[in-house]
Amino acid sequence: MKRIRLGWVLGLLAALFLILFPLYILFKYSIADRASIVTGGRYPEPLWPFHPTFEMYRYLVSRGDFWAAGVTSVRIALYTVALSLTLGAPAAYALARYRFAGYGVLIFTLLSLRLFPDIATVIPVVERFYKPPLSALPVEVQVALAHTLLSLPYVIFMSIGVFQGIPRDLEEQAAILGCSRLYTFTRILLPVAAPGLAAGAIYTFLLSWNEFIFAYYLTFTNPEGATLPVYLLRVMAWTPQKNLLAALAVVISVPVILFSFLVQKYMQAGLTAGAVK
């Protein structure tokens, strides 16, 4: 028993190191001064910068294209959230309340969509969006429409549970009091479901914020429309400067790390959708 315990503690420490060390290294590079990253091979790179500096962060916030990418990322993510919830919440409600013959087929359809690789679906999607009438849409809307394809199955999955948790009595009472179905859904059920749906919303926000392939393809010919991950890759192609890349990577990751702590419990449901019986 003692030996198992020791092995477990060592394993836990190793796993924590494996996860936290790369994150620490990213942070370290983001505050590194020049001498700490350009060593010329005369000395090993230090594990803590010789002269920590926030110079790269200051440089980033002084750049207009960085802000533009940030605003684009936020906008696309918000559009995606709005679209996914508007389409997903009613569908989840119907699936939660009524078991019908097609239920299994619908769930199967939702899941099998994930068989399509993004790098494959993006080709016809981009070809479509380059031609009228869809080319008339603002590029941010185009990316949001594509992101909704990815998020919608998850939003529906996560929200089914939320609606199942609401007692049916609520709707029955509302019906007795003479509320229409639409009124019941929008004014009574949605407010009750809101906290659970918020988790789906945050999950969608993160998915869109982190997504690379669709954002990259749809903004390829239009640098103005770059999201932050696409911007990071552009910077990477343009400079190998480690501290600048690291600072940008930190800025992109911090909001998602904070958000993900908030929705841990629900993210679990999204990530394991369909895998657990």
Partner: peptide, 10 residues
């Protein structure tokens, strides 16, 4: 859970 929160590009 941290690794999954971070964008792949990062």
């Amino acid at each position: 859970m941290l690794p999954i929160a971070i964008p792949s590009v990062v």
